[in-house]
Simulated assay, not measured.
Amino acid sequence: MAARLATFVHVHDEDGVTHILGPDDTVPAELAKLITNPDAWADPPDPEPAQQVPESEPSESWTVPQLRDYAADKKIDLGDATKKADVLAVIAAAAENSNTGADGNPAV
Rank of each mutant, 00 (worst) to 15 (best):
residue 6 A to C: 07
residue 9 V to Q: 01
residue 9 V to L: 04
residue 13 D to H: 13
residue 14 E to F: 10
residue 16 G to C: 09
residue 16 G to F: 07
residue 18 T to Q: 15
residue 19 H to D: 01
residue 20 I to K: 04
residue 22 G to R: 03
residue 25 D to Y: 01
residue 27 V to P: 09
residue 28 P to W: 03
residue 29 A to W: 06
residue 31 L to H: 01
residue 31 L to R: 00
residue 32 A to G: 09
residue 32 A to V: 05
residue 32 A to T: 07
residue 33 K to L: 05
residue 35 I to T: 04
residue 36 T to W: 01
residue 41 W to I: 10
residue 44 P to E: 06
residue 45 P to S: 13
residue 47 P to C: 01
residue 48 E to T: 07
residue 50 A to C: 10
residue 50 A to M: 15
residue 52 Q to G: 05
residue 54 P to Y: 00
residue 54 P to I: 03
residue 55 E to H: 12
residue 56 S to R: 07
residue 56 S to W: 02
residue 57 E to L: 07
residue 58 P to Q: 04
residue 59 S to D: 09
residue 59 S to C: 09
residue 61 S to H: 00
residue 63 T to Y: 08
residue 63 T to D: 04
residue 63 T to W: 09
residue 64 V to K: 07
residue 65 P to Q: 08
residue 68 R to Q: 15
residue 69 D to W: 01
residue 70 Y to G: 01
residue 72 A to T: 12
residue 77 D to T: 10
residue 77 D to N: 14
residue 79 G to Q: 12
residue 79 G to T: 12
residue 81 A to F: 06
residue 82 T to V: 14
residue 83 K to Y: 03
residue 85 A to N: 09
residue 85 A to S: 14
residue 88 L to Q: 06
residue 90 V to S: 02
residue 90 V to H: 04
residue 92 A to S: 10
residue 93 A to Y: 08
residue 94 A to Y: 01
residue 94 A to W: 00
residue 94 A to D: 08
residue 97 N to Q: 12
residue 97 N to A: 13
residue 102 A to C: 10
residue 102 A to P: 15
residue 107 A to G: 00
residue 108 V to L: 06
